[in-house]
Nucleic acid binder design. Structure first.
Length: 426
RNA sequence: GUGGAUGUAGCUCAGCUGGUUAGAGCACCAGGUUGUGGCCCUGGGGGUCGGGGGUUCAAGUCCCCUCAUUCACCCCA
């Protein structure tokens, strides 16, 4: 295919069965969130560009990774690069600050960033996230962490590795920032090029440089600069999470890229993915809603990249397979087979029939690949108001009267523990 | 934005130092039974060797350019 007709760089066609794994993942995420009483919020996949500019002056995803366009009416729009800003906008615009507190919201959908694709990183990816508005209490932070961990556990990533840090508040962070800048400025010559830029742009990010690890070891620790409120806040979050039996550890070098965070930041990885990988992350952003000209409201949330999660679980997370019935037919009975299939679907039985008018042999070959049971419509049996039913689980074949058919089929499908000497491939 | 790797059938890949009509496995289709799947056997459809240019009697193979894909850094989900 010509290059200019191909899928855009960094996007993907999600083919079956992967597409069904996505669908199952979504159901699990939403169901788990409902277990905690979260509500689902849908926002547009594009917003006015200012919505994202408000929240991330110094972050790459709003600086030079934006998919922006001017529409025919001259409005500056951007495909959303992340969920939190859009939810904050919706929160203010819809007056949700007047809703009963706390307000617990989740979202699911595509996000867009124009960056160079690599393993598990796409220009369009799917994110599931939660935002909890209206509570400053450490319990809100722990609720968010617990929900996110439960979701990944539901898909098979047990014992997630939770790392947490506090980047302080408007009162104590400036002190730390100054101490950090002083420390690194004195060693400017020893820093890598990236860190010299970070020193100007976003000093906190000096801490998670992978090159200058020796320098940061003697750098000032955030913990020594926390005010009393910030200190007791993170301690309570960690205590609360631990008390439900979920390990959590402080990572003194953990700071996150988006600059709207206050106090809590966290990332969660998994042992199967290596020591410091991030499957998802989040934090607190108490000042965000105020920047949308609404009343200030404390908030905490997480965002989870679904492609990364599914890549991490691998084949351990198969899609659900409906036990399928295939209606095969003898020559001249193709129409009858489809009518039969439709009647079985009326009984909520997943059913297919041949649409190519192929030989019985070919029909059964296809049926054997995808179905649990095959029906054969036509011939002598049809004249006696019966059909042949073949069970691929054991190779047995029965002649069943039409009026008893739905009951018979449901009975066979219910019994999962058939002997399998026939070689089912389900 | 920086650096590395790779492009041969739908998929995974062979194709030695350039040498006849480019192959295999899997997948797909058909036949081996007048009305029966899997396993096995036989046959079949499918390829501008990513594209363009060059060297040569001869290029999938060598050279240049280009496009695409992929991995890492930056950043992030």
């Amino acid at each position: 295919m010509n290059a200019d007709l191909q899928r855009p760089k960094g996007t993907q066609d999600i083919l079956p069965p992967e597409s069904w794994r996505f669908d199952k993942m979504r159901r699990i995420a939403l169901d788990t969130a409902r277990l905690y009483g979260f509500e689902l919020l849908e926002t547009p996949i594009f917003e006015q560009t200012q919505v994202f500019m408000r929240v991330g002056e110094s972050t790459d995803i709003v600086q030079h990774e934006r998919y922006s366009f001017i529409d025919a009416g001259g409005v500056d729009l951007t495909l959303r690069p992340e969920g939190t800003a859009a939810v904050a906008r919706a929160y203010v615009q819809n007056g949700m600050y007047n809703w009963p507190k706390p307000l617990k919201l989740i979202y699911w959908g595509p996000m867009f960033r124009r960056e160079r694709p690599q393993a598990d990183r796409y220009r369009q990816h799917t994110q599931f996230g939660a935002e909890l508005y209206g509570s400053e209490d450490p319990g809100a932070d722990s609720e968010i962490i617990l929900l996110a961990c439960r979701v990944v556990e539901q898909v098979g990533l047990t014992n997630p590795d939770v790392r947490i840090n506090s980047i302080g508040c408007a009162i104590c962070r400036p002190n730390y920032r100054k101490a950090l800048v002083d420390y690194y400025s004195a060693r400017r010559d020893e820093l890598c090029q990236d860190c010299q830029n970070r020193l100007e742009k976003n000093p906190l990010r000096l801490l998670d440089c992978k090159v200058d690890v020796a320098i940061r070891q003697t750098a000032p620790d955030l913990a020594d600069y926390w005010c009393d409120d910030c200190k007791s806040h993170i301690e309570s979050v960690m205590a609360q999470v631990s008390q439900v039996g979920r390990p959590i550890r402080r990572d003194p070098y953990l700071v996150r890229g988006l600059d709207y965070y206050t106090r809590t930041v966290f990332e969660v990885g998994h042992p199967s993915q290596g020591p410091n990988t991030a499957l998802f992350g989040g934090g607190r952003y108490d000042g965000l809603s105020a920047s949308f000209e609404g009343p200030g409201a404390p908030a905490v949330g997480f965002g989870m990249g679904i492609e990364r999660i599914l890549s991490a679980v691998g084949d351990q997370f198969p899609p659900d397979e409906a036990p399928l019935i295939y209606v095969a037919h003898l020559p001249g009975f193709m129409g009858q087979a489809q009518i039969m299939a439709e009647q079985l679907r009326n009984q909520q039985l997943a059913t297919e029939s041949d649409l190519l008018d192929r030989s019985l042999k070919a029909q059964l070959r296809e049926a054997g690949k995808k179905a649990r049971l095959a029906l054969i419509v036509g011939g002598r049996e049809w004249e006696q108001k019966t059909v042949q039913v073949k069970d691929f689980a054991n190779g047995q074949q029965h002649i069943v009267e039409l009026e008893n058919l739905p009951l018979f089929l449901k009975d066979r499908l219910r019994d999962e523990s058939q002997d399998t000497n026939g070689g089912s491939n389900l």
